[in-house]
Design a binder for these strands. Structure first.
Length: 574
DNA sequence: GCCGTTTTCGGCCCGACTGTTTTCAGTCG
C-alpha cells in the first residue's frame, strides 16, 4: 500500500471515529498524520524500514505502528473494527453539508438510518424534525442538500475528467490500427466541469472491431452501455461515462470538430456552412454530395472563411464572428507565465516549507513565487498574526539570499472581514510586497452586501489582488452571489487585479466574466492557490479558463516580471 | 493519539453562524 492510500485510510478512520464519538484529539491526530503523509517528500517505506517514522513531528509510536502495518498490506485491526461498527452509507451522509458527525450519529442511532436513501425518505416523511437538535429548518436544509448532491452527481471536475480521459487516450493511441487519436468534448474545451468523456479515433475499417473490443474491456470499464462498430459508450468505475467514436482517417478532422463541440458552436458552424451552400457534419464538409477534403481542423475553418478557432473558444460566444473578421485573440499560453501567485506554506495550512515551495517553482521554470499564507482570523488554517508575519518575512529574506535568479515575493491571503475591512491594519499590510484579499467567512450575505464588502476591501490601497471572488466550490457549494460587473468595474477603477483561482474545485472568477474584465482592462492573476508543490500543476486549469475567457498574455499579471508585479502593487499605494 | 525542559500528565486552534434552544450544540472554514 502506498503513501496516498494510507493517508486516505487514516482520513477515513478519523471520520468513522468522529461518528462513533471518539476522543476528538485522537481524531485530529489521525487527520494530522494523513496530512503529514500527503506532504512527505521522502520515501515512506524507507523511513519505516529505518525506524525513523517517529522522528516526524506528529507521528508517535502508535501511528508509526499503524503506518507500518498498512505499508506491508497487513490488516489494520482498528480500521476493520471501525468499518464493521459503522455502516458505510453513513460516510456518504456525512458528505451532506450540514450533516456533521453528531447529526449523522443521531439519525443512525435514533432512526436506524444507514444510507442516503433512508435519510431522504425520513426527511420527506417529516421524521427528522422531531429529533432533539433537529427542527423544521434542519430537515428542509438536509433535503435540499441531498437534492443538490444528486443534481451534481452526473458532473465532474475538469481535473477528474482530464485524468480519466488521459488514461483512456494513453491506452488507445498505441493500439494496432489506430492512426489518429484525440480527447474531444468539454475536456478539450477546458470547461470547468464535464458531463462525460469523448474520445475520437481514426483507423482502417478492418481494425475497428478490435479497437472497440479493446476499449470496452479496459480495466477501468465498469459496464458497457452500448457497443457498435463506430461508437461505443462505457461507464467507468469512477462513475464517468465515456464515448469512443471511430471513423476513417479522412473523416477524422470533421469528427474531432463535431465531438469537441460545443453543441451551440456546432449549430452556428453548420448554419454558416448552409449560408455558403455547404453541409457540415461529423463525416465531412459537403458541396452537394461531394466532400471537400480537409486534412485537419484548420482546413475546415479555412474552407468556411474562418481563422482557426481554439477549442476553448468554441462556445458560440462570438468566436465565429471574430474568426470571420480575423480578430480572434492570441490566447495566453502556459509558458507565457513567469511567476506563481497565491501559494501557502507550512506557516499556515500548506504542507511544504518556504524554501521547498520556492525551489520547486524555480525547477518548473518560474522566475518568482508569491507566498501568501492565511491571515490571523483564519485560525482553522493556522493563520498568521503580526508577529508570525515578521518571522515568516525574515525566513523569506533568508531563502531569497541563498537563491539565484529567483525571487520570493512577500504576500498574505488577507481575510476580508464581514464589514469589508481587512484582517490586518495598514501598518502590517505595508510590510508585504503585495496583498491578496479573500473572503472565507460569513457567506450568508445578500448580493448587495457581498458586492459592497468586496468593493470596500478593494478600496484599501494595499490590496493588490482580489482572491476567489465568489467563494464557490464547484459541484459542492454555490458561491455567494455578487454583482460581477460592479466588482469588475471597481477593480478597473481602483487598479486592483482579480484572480482566477486555478484550483479545479474553484476556477473562480468564472470565465464567463473574463471577456468583460478584459474589455475593462482589469489585470487577471492565474493563481494555483497551492497548498503543496503538486498544487502548481493546477495552473494549467487556470490557463484553460483564461483561454476560455479570451485572455491574452498582456491581460495576465503573472506574465510580467517580478519587478513589474512589484510596480503594479506600488502604484496603488502612492 | 501526540507532545514536552516551566509539564511524562494535561493540554491539544478558534470565531462566527445557524437553528435550536432558553444558554448552547453542531457545523463550518
Amino acid at each position: 500500500m502506498d503513501k496516498k492510500q494510507i493517508s486516505k485510510i487514516l482520513t477515513e478512520m478519523a471520520l468513522l471515529m468522529e461518528i462513533k464519538g471518539d476522543n476528538p484529539f485522537k481524531i485530529r491526530a489521525h487527520e494530522n498524520a494523513a496530512r503529514i503523509l500527503d506532504g512527505l517528500g521522502e520515501n515512506l517505506a524507507e523511513l519505516a524500514a529505518a525506524g525513523k517514522l517517529t522522528g516526524i513531528k506528529g507521528i508517535g509510536q502508535g501511528m508509526a505502528d499503524k503506518i507500518t502495518t498498512l505499508l506491508s498490506d497487513q490488516p489494520l485491526e482498528e480500521y476493520d473494527r471501525l468499518k464493521k461498527a459503522i455502516p458505510a452509507g453513513l460516510l456518504e451522509i456525512a458528505r451532506i453539508p450540514g450533516m456533521g458527525p453528531k447529526k449523522v450519529k443521531a439519525v443512525w442511532q435514533e432512526l436506524n438510518i444507514t444510507n442516503l436513501e433512508e435519510l431522504e425518505a425520513a426527511g420527506k416523511a417529516d421524521r427528522l424534525s422531531g429529533m432533539k437538535g433537529f427542527g423544521a429548518k434542519t430537515q428542509e436544509k438536509i433535503l435540499e442538500n441531498i437534492e443538490l448532491m444528486k443534481r451534481f452527481q452526473d458532473r465532474y471536475l475538469i481535473s477528474e475528467g482530464e485524468t480519466a480521459a488521459a488514461s483512456l487516450y494513453q491506452a488507445l493511441k498505441d493500439q494496432p490500427g489506430v492512426i489518429r487519436c484525440e480527447i474531444a468534448g468539454s475536456v478539450r474545451r477546458r470547461k470547468e466541469t464535464i458531463g462525460d468523456l469523448d474520445l475520437v479515433v481514426s483507423a482502417e475499417d478492418r481494425h475497428r472491431a478490435a479497437i472497440m473490443d479493446f476499449f470496452t474491456t479496459l480495466p477501468g470499464v465498469e459496464t458497457v452501455k452500448s457497443k457498435g462498430d463506430t461508437k461505443s459508450t462505457a461507464l467507468l468505475s469512477s462513475g464517468i461515462s465515456a464515448d469512443l467514436r471511430i471513423v476513417s482517417d479522412a473523416q477524422f478532422p470533421y469528427l474531432l470538430h463535431h465531438s469537441t463541440g460545443s453543441k451551440e458552436h456546432n449549430v452556428a458552424m453548420r448554419q454558416r456552412a448552409i449560408q455558403q451552400g455547404l453541409k457540415l457534419n461529423e463525416y465531412g464538409l459537403f458541396r452537394d454530395e461531394t466532400n471537400i477534403s480537409c486534412a485537419d481542423e484548420e482546413a475546415i475553418f479555412r474552407e468556411l472563411g474562418l481563422d482557426f478557432i481554439p477549442p476553448e473558444l468554441r462556445e458560440n460566444y462570438g468566436e465565429i464572428e471574430a474568426a470571420a473578421q480575423q480578430t480572434l485573440p492570441k490566447l495566453l499560453e502556459m509558458n507565457d507565465l513567469r511567476g506563481v501567485i497565491h501559494t501557502h506554506t507550512l506557516w499556515s495550512d500548506g504542507v511544504h516549507s518556504v524554501e521547498e515551495m520556492a525551489r520547486a517553482a524555480q525547477k518548473l521554470g518560474y522566475e518568482y513565487l508569491v507566498i501568501s499564507d492565511h491571515s490571523k482570523v483564519a485560525a482553522y488554517a493556522n493563520g498568521l498574526n503580526a508577529e508570525r508575519v515578521k518571522q515568516q518575512q525574515a525566513e523569506i529574506d533568508a531563502v531569497n539570499a541563498r537563491m539565484d535568479n529567483f525571487r520570493i515575493l512577500k504576500s498574505i491571503e488577507c481575510d476580508i472581514l464581514g464589514d469589508g475591512t481587512l484582517d490586518f491594519p495598514d501598518e502590517v499590510l505595508a510590510t508585504f510586497d503585495l496583498v491578496i484579499a479573500s473572503i472565507h467567512s460569513k457567506f450568508g450575505m445578500t448580493r448587495d452586501e457581498a458586492t459592497r464588502r468586496l468593493i470596500r476591501a478593494m478600496e484599501n490601497p494595499y490590496v493588490t489582488v482580489l482572491g476567489h471572488p465568489t467563494g464557490r466550490l464547484l459541484l459542492a457549494r454555490e458561491g455567494y452571489a455578487i454583482d460581477h460587473h460592479a466588482v469588475i468595474d471597481a477593480a478597473a477603477e481602483l487598479g486592483v487585479c482579480i484572480e482566477i483561482n486555478a484550483n479545479p474545485r474553484r476556477l473562480d472568477l468564472d470565465w464567463r466574466f473574463l471577456k468583460y474584465a478584459k474589455e475593462k482592462r482589469v489585470q487577471i492573476a492565474i493563481s494555483p492557490d497551492a497548498h503543496r508543490i503538486e498544487g502548481y500543476d493546477d495552473v494549467r486549469y487556470g490557463v484553460g479558463i483564461a483561454r476560455k475567457g479570451w485572455l491574452e498574455k498582456d491581460d495576465v499579471l503573472n506574465t510580467r516580471t517580478a519587478e513589474e508585479v512589484l510596480a503594479f502593487a506600488r502604484k496603488r499605494r502612492q
